[in-house]
Design a protein around this nucleic acid. Structure first.
Lengths: 372, 372
DNA sequence: AAATGTTCCGTGTTCGTTCACGAAGATAAT
DNA sequence: ATTATCTTCGTGAACGAACACGGAACATTT
């Protein structure tokens, strides 16, 4: 009577009656099951699953109905095993001068993820551009278009070039994931970034928490071209916002914009003019360049900066820097690669916006922030 | 001449000459390849791989040599697909009274991982014990032994009962992973915990950073049975250590041990006797129980506690608590399940000790610490 | 010498897909 | 009516590993 209900592999429990103390017990419906229900062969089901036509509208609708009703999910193990074609991912990120550089970290995470995906037939081709030379971005982007990969991990460093590239990707419907920063005008399947404004806000809180009322606080941008560095401006904004909104006595904020090679003169001038510096906020990883300057003062100001690059880490451990804000670049890379995988291989809908946590690092907790 | 070198699927590049700009391109050697090289059939290779005998020592050694030389890694896709047997994981954790409770979080992470593993034929059976009733631990442990799962996720809450259980697991060579705390006397394949001493150390730093020199600092244990709560004692130790080692002016530390239902009287007495409380450190998630007491003081002390449970989060956001230390319980669960998977399914060696980061949470960064 | 064990190893099927190939049946062109 | 061309669908061989089964070679017992 109910033989069909208990026939092997055809028993598919509705999701809502699964035993809540067990996870993963639901038996998936197979292509063969769908075929039987529809009275066709697996070849036909396969054709509608892969949308390669040659199926009458009638049977197509029938099969699609069954797929929906029984919530068919392809078995990616069998799928990847049977599929002989390679899936190619490409990454386009700033060139990391050495293994210690910031941009080596996301690549680490990406590499780790890709290695786990190897048996799924996934390969990654890495491309790098030089941050100061937008032409190199275009050149590498062109190479990627030639390669025609199945998915792209992209750090959209300069807006104009990135938009041109992503528009072309949209045309060719090649999915891409943004890493490190986002472009509202583009259509990535997902982006994974840190909230820069909020991180500046947090930095201000940490300064505020640690200083006596009043006094002077330096906000230092160390970059050659501040206008191109949107991150830094947003961090600054968050920092200022905090003191606007808080009901604390607002310190006197002094903003300094300087290129890496002019720090010495610039900061010496500043120190001779301003007394009683209670806090220093450096808006990027270059904080190691300024930490030494305040040793001479009778009371060192609270110093806060960004990123766990080795020189910063040393200074943090030695007590010359109070806080580093971290954005887990390895984890970002790892997640980004996983997002592409979920989208392309697992064919799942992925969260389109991903904000990484804003980690507060001190010498007391840094040792647990090294690995992924 | 070199035909065998380029024969399909037999081309296995040494790892050191892979192009560094590409990841995942190395072709894996298959069982069939090993069989050919050894001049036997795949059946024989399969027998030595699974150590089920019936192979002469001679050919066995030959095959093992090839496996080693060519760094054979089984294709887990094909492997899981072909293997019809279910792999059962069991978890034994404290019962979470509701979805918001602390112990619901690790289960969330575990569940997420297990769902990703479903197609590998993995199921999870959940077991829970009541924290105050060690007998329930024993009862559930017995159920698990009956079930004879392939791997176990275990929160070793009470030492005696846990050791008895893990010894039995050792006897039956069932692998287990510790979560939340570790037992030096046991032999888990891995443990994933937070360094409690260091977290107390960090808490002290945050108090120290925020208070003026001197003054009184309260250390509050809120528990029914402090001696059974090793975590809390270690956190206290780290907290005291900090002020011993630092070259700051050490505040006067006042230790309070109180059960959850006696807080009110206890704390009121304390407040009437001690003036000028600058900092409060609560050694567990019960910090929400005390935050309200200090509103009446003209200057609220700095308050720090543990864990992002809803009541704490509310108080943090409302500015009644300054810092919460977090141990990413979801991520712990997720990682623990992945460790079991890597060990049992992927047959990889896993890191035996895993320390989660000690996250500093403030109202400024909490919104990015909710999800996994 | 035949019968029976042992030891060692090969073969074939299966897992759920992918995909090339080809076979019907219907329709259109000759 | 015959051939050609579509449209629509089924079949069977992979993919790499797991595992049951069976078979050959050799040794041991009657």
């Amino acid at each position: 009577m109910f033989a069909h209900d208990i026939e092997k592999n055809l028993l598919v429990l509705p999701a809502n009656i699964t035993n809540s103390s067990d996870i993963g017990m639901k038996k998936n419906i197979r292509i063969l099951d769908i075929a039987k229900k529809a009275g066709v062969s697996i070849g036909t089901v396969d054709r509608v699953l892969h949308e390669r036509g040659e199926v009458s509208k009638e049977t197509r609708d029938k099969i699609l109905g069954i797929i929906k009703d029984y919530d068919y999910r392809p078995n990616i193990l069998a799928s990847s095993l049977a599929s002989k074609k390679l899936i190619t991912f490409a990454s386009l990120t700033p060139l990391a001068p050495d293994k210690e550089a910031f941009w080596a970290k996301p690549m680490e995470g990406i590499g780790k993820a890709i290695n786990q995906f190897r048996q799924y037939g996934i390969v990654l081709k890495q491309f790098h551009f030089k941050m100061e030379e937008p032409e190199t971005f275009n050149a590498e982007a062109a190479k990627i278009l030639d390669l025609a990969p199945d998915g792209i991990l992209l750090a959209p460093w300069t807006k104009k070039e990135s938009l041109k590239f992503t528009q072309e990707l949209d045309n060719r419907s090649i999915p891409y994931v943004f890493i490190d920063s986002n472009l509202k005008e583009a259509n990535p399947i997902s982006f994974i970034v840190q909230d820069s404004v909020q991180s500046g806000f947090l930095a201000a809180k940490l300064i505020d928490y640690g200083i006596a009322e009043g006094g002077n606080v330096l906000v230092i941008h160390i970059t050659k071209n501040l206008q191109n560095a949107n991150h830094l401006l947003q961090r600054e904004k968050g920092f200022y916002d905090y003191f606007e909104k808080c009901n604390c006595e607002k310190p006197h904020l002094i903003k300094i914009e300087v290129s890496p090679d002019e720090i010495e003169t610039n900061l010496n001038t500043c120190l001779s003019e301003v007394k009683s510096i209670q806090g220093v906020f450096v808006t990027n990883s270059k904080v190691h360049l300024v930490a030494g300057f305040f040793n001479s003062l009778e009371k060192r100001p609270k110093i806060i900066g960004y990123d766990l690059i080795p020189r910063n880490v040393d200074l943090l451990i030695n007590g010359k820097i109070d806080f580093l804000l971290n954005q887990k670049p390895e984890a970002q890379g790892y997640m980004a690669a996983n997002l592409l995988f979920d989208q392309i291989v697992r064919k799942e809908k992925v969260k389109s916006s991903n904000y990484t946590s804003i980690d507060i690092i001190t010498r007391e907790n840094i040792e647990y922030y090294s690995s992924i």
